[in-house]
Design a binder for these strands. Structure first.
Lengths: 240, 240
DNA sequence: CGAGCCATTGAATGCCATCAATTTTAGTGG
DNA sequence: CCACTAAAATTGATGGCATTCAATGGCTCG
């Protein structure tokens, strides 16, 4: 800490500097013009979540919304008998915390060190009244999430293990492209156990299937978490 | 047609009479007061879809929204190689047609003779500008749909055949209760093939599992489409 | 460099799918 | 109302893909 002007490294601090935010173009705040986004800045706070930490838990009261600026997050549900199912992964630009319930129906946990923009629920809802198009934008994002969930239902209901993994890789690829990063190769920010759980498979099946995909020259792996898709354009044909 | 005042039996006609609509309390229009709902009435049309007919198809342009007044609808996706996956069923009070895309990503088909309230997309979106809380209500409904889709992901990823069927019955039961009908017995408005497809199973497995549930006295069937849940309150414990 | 976790590979089991046949239901017309 | 027919549902026999159980290999990080 060199200068007195440096804030202490607390988890929550003000002044997110929305105007030059890296996810502004794809996030909900992107529909606000420069003059209006200053108002949003005054009601938002930065929050850093270290890898492996929870952002909120199933059963917690919904009183905060989040915007992901950096990192990645897994969303999972627990049944009363302890079974766990990951229902989604979220990435920079995604809006987190919307619910039709008063309590969260799922857990959110950081897969890597993650930076969030945090809003008080009531305050942001009042902000909607002044800028209705912000709420429209969020409706749009939720609809997008719903479409993704329906795709996942298709995957779980009809795809083989090999198809599930390939579809998963393509999803990550297009996610990266949306963020302006390269769509190939891709990086898996989660362990095999999370991939398996998300895809309705076991770790062993994921591992075996990856070995097959490597043998068949469909993918190439650099280490255990970076994957190059060999004929990426050919893959979608035999899915969807 | 006894009186000249009777309209011809066309599929689409005006004057839905929102004020005394049977689904008003649970549908999106329920947040409007009596004086405001008259304005909604002027932009809505009635539409009847006979059993088995499509409401819209995957790839169709999104230019109409629907509100289900009576009947039931199945939502399903097709992959390019012809595989089909039902991703949801919709019932009276549900809002149909929202999308983040310009084209529908799924098909909607009436499971029984169904009555809809129809809105032009652009017109209803302009209506939102005048009554923003209508859009808030729809955001709420979409969030509810998303939560249901996440539940279905859990079901497909972690539940056994027996659990899938029981969960499905409980869902229908609570749907009926929301409509003020009895939650037990329940009526299946779709054939076995649709149940199987929705639950990620085959017709044969559904049939076999139903036989087991009957043998174990967990359900009692009246005909092939009416089901009485014997100890309904006990069932949820061993799910969720 | 070693400990512990994560990933991979192997062998055997099991649940649900597939293939096949029968029974029941529902719809139609005599 | 009943016979007739086609579709839907049920039941049986077999098989396969992914799981489960078990062991080995390979990172990663103190």
């Amino acid at each position: 800490m060199k200068h007195p002007s440096c804030r202490p490294s607390i988890v929550t601090k003000n002044n997110p500097k929305c105007a030059q935010c890296s996810v502004r173009l794809i996030a909900f705040c992107g529909i606000l013009e420069d003059k209006d986004i200053l108002q949003l800045e005054t009601i938002s706070k930065n929050k850093n979540i270290p890898k492996g930490n929870s952002i909120f838990l199933q059963g917690d009261e919904v009183k905060t919304f989040y915007n992901i600026k950096q990192g990645s997050v897994k969303i999972y549900k627990l049944s009363h008998d302890g079974r766990k199912q990951i229902v989604g992964f979220m990435y920079p630009g995604d809006f987190l915390g919307m619910s039709d319930q008063d309590l969260f129906t799922y857990n959110a946990e950081a897969l890597e060190d993650t930076k969030l923009c945090q809003f008080n629920k009531t305050v942001l809802e009042n902000f909607f009244l002044k800028f209705p198009k912000v709420e429209s934008k969020i409706l749009n994002l939720v609809n997008h999430e719903l479409a993704a969930a329906q795709d996942q239902i298709f995957l779980l209901g009809k795809y083989s293990a090999k198809e599930r993994l390939l579809q998963f890789f393509l999803n990550i690829s297009s996610q990266r492209e949306k963020l302006g990063w390269g769509g190939n190769p891709i990086r898996l920010s989660m362990p095999r156990s999370d991939i398996a759980n998300y895809l309705g498979l076991t770790i062993e099946t994921v591992s075996r299937t990856l070995s097959e995909l490597k043998k068949d020259q469909i993918i190439k792996m650099i280490g255990t978490h970076d994957i190059f898709l060999n004929n990426k354009d050919q893959i979608p044909q035999y899915l969807t």
